[in-house]
Computed example of a mutant assay.
Amino acid sequence: MPIYMDRHDVSENVTAETVAKLHQEDLKIQHKYNCRGLTYWFDDVRKTAFCLIEAPDKQSLTTMHKNAHGQVPYQIIEVDADVVESFLGRIEDPENRDKTELNIINEPAFRAIMVTGIKPYSFLNMKKEVLNLSIQKFNLSTLSTIKQFKGRIVNHSNDYFMVSFASVADAMKCALEVQREFDKWKEKHDFINIKLKTGLSAGVPVTNSRTLFDDTVKTAERLYYISMAKILITNEVKELYKNEEITNALLTDRVEPVDPEDEKFLNQVMDRLEESWKNSEFRAIDLSRALSMSKSKLYRRIISLTGKSPNTFIKDYRLKKAIHFFRLKKGNISEIAYETGFGSPSYFSKCFHQKYGIKPTDYLQLQEG
């Protein structure tokens, strides 16, 4: 049976005890609608509650809530239990340690999401095993740091971590410590042209999107994508960090908060790019038209945010997709060149070599070797 998470925006007078009582009312009649309430989260600061419920469909869930207490959800999405646990740490009620008759849960579902990873910018004809072994050593220290700051790993590959934190302060401290460890590691591996990329965002699990933490994850991934030497964070993360950790000032030489208008602009650019990157005819002029912005203004804003011209930003995004396809073995060089929006395999090879310092054919050999 499907599992759903719903969102309730509650009034200022609602307390954790109120929500616990409403949850009990659900449990009393859930069998009538073939539903099973698994658990919930309540945020007294943001006045939101999120219920995790096994149900035949969304309508059954809504009807149960309506007849139990009248508090119908604002939004409902279908979720995977394992994904919920990876972000939020549980899929059932926490232990009632006080042994009270009513198990009152006052635990927000709000999370800080960190995306971080090291990316080689020039392969320098290194064999895959040599590069991977070096990266794996750094990853071991990263895993230890994540554990130290109570992070939960949502997704992880050889050069990429997505981590969920209940505390923004812990997320920030973790990101800073990973950066420090990277600096030490880099001193010993200066033969590798490699950089640490980190993006930090924060938000709730259910918004108007269809997947869990979709908006927060997208923003964190996009900040990670454009970051170079600094930790890019949303303005909300900056303000929350200051509130949680007032004795520790942000290390501005390491951390760069992104202005809310720039964050909005980045999301608009990436939304359009994700829709059109496969189209070989898609250029900066098309992006400026889609955003109702002059070409010169678009150029200035993208240069300011990413350090790249719009056309270079589009080209680099396509090359990133090509690397991904190569790793998945989703075709030969010509097929991937056309699949990623390049007009010809020869132009693709030229761009790939300029970006990574190695030809696609040699890169494939390194992956196999």
Rank of each mutant, 00 (worst) to 15 (best):
I3G: 04
M5E: 06
R7Y: 15
V10D: 09
A20S: 06
D26Q: 04
R36Q: 08
Y40K: 14
A49W: 06
P56W: 02
T63H: 08
H65N: 11
Y74I: 05
S86Y: 00
E92D: 14
E95D: 08
N96R: 00
N106I: 01
A109T: 14
A112M: 03
K119F: 10
Y121I: 14
S122H: 07
S122I: 02
N125H: 13
E129G: 09
L133C: 00
L133F: 10
F138Q: 14
I146P: 11
Y160D: 11
F161Y: 11
M162K: 10
V168F: 01
D170E: 03
L176Y: 13
E181Q: 10
K186I: 03
D190Y: 04
V204N: 15
N208E: 15
L212W: 10
D214S: 06
D215M: 02
A220P: 01
A229S: 15
L232S: 10
I233S: 04
N235K: 14
N235R: 08
T247K: 06
V255S: 07
D259H: 06
D271Y: 10
L273D: 08
W277Y: 15
S280R: 07
E281Q: 14
A284M: 05
D286G: 06
D286Q: 10
S292P: 00
M293R: 04
S296P: 02
I302C: 03
G307D: 12
F313M: 05
K321C: 11
L328I: 08
K329H: 15
G331R: 10
C351W: 04
F352A: 08
H353M: 12
Q354H: 09
Q354R: 07
Q365R: 12
L366C: 13
